[in-house]
Amino acid sequence: MKGSIRLGIALALFAVGACASLAVVYAITEERIAAQDQMALEASLQDLFPQGELFEDISASIASTNPGVTIQSAFLAKQGEASLGLAVKAAGPSYGGQAVLLVGVGLNRSIAGVRILELNDTAGLGANAKNPGYYVDKVNKVTFPGQFTGKFITDPFVVKSDVVAITASTITSTALTTIVKAAADSGALWLENSTLASPADVSSATSYSGSAASESAPETTGGN
């Protein structure tokens, strides 16, 4: 009995020492890690909306339209008083684990751009999605995420029909397309519910909402 108490005390002392030293390192690096994450995010937001001056966090009020895809955060890009569009950070499963994309949605319900933030698929195959030198359209030098730019969210988003797949990586292509579609739909839905539609857009936006509801339902189930 006495022996095991002594062992317990020895173990506890080492644990306390380890905790204390970890706390010190954590306190030193915490701020910097948060700043790094913030900087990386801001750089990609700025990249999607080069004219954006302010990015308002709207993560709390946005919901995913696809249960397989989670919306991690979302930002409203603003230039002065005018809104430019939404940037939606969405995560979903791909071939090699979780993939995280940043999808820009313009006020006209088209995709302003897609950036791949995290992807762990096979090097040389699925990982070509984030290779800036891999083109799905070699003539016009369009990358896999680049091909989404300008697409309207009412488009079908079907791999091998209106989305060009990465060679020998259908799983990655389909997975990423599903995430882009879900992020764009969620962003569009948020725009629908907000009062932000640009004046010229208002009439078309209301007429659009009906068709979006009927259209997005079969596609979310089909996408999975």
């Binding site: 173990l11 080492f14 644990a15 380890a18 905790c19 030293s21 970890l22 390192v25 910097r32 890690i33």
Partner: peptide, 16 residues
């Protein structure tokens, strides 16, 4: 415990 503490330190420093 000791190894885990140093590994976590490396992880934090690398992230930062």
């Amino acid at each position: 415990i000791i190894i885990a503490a140093f590994t976590t330190m490396v992880d934090l420093v690398m992230k930062a």
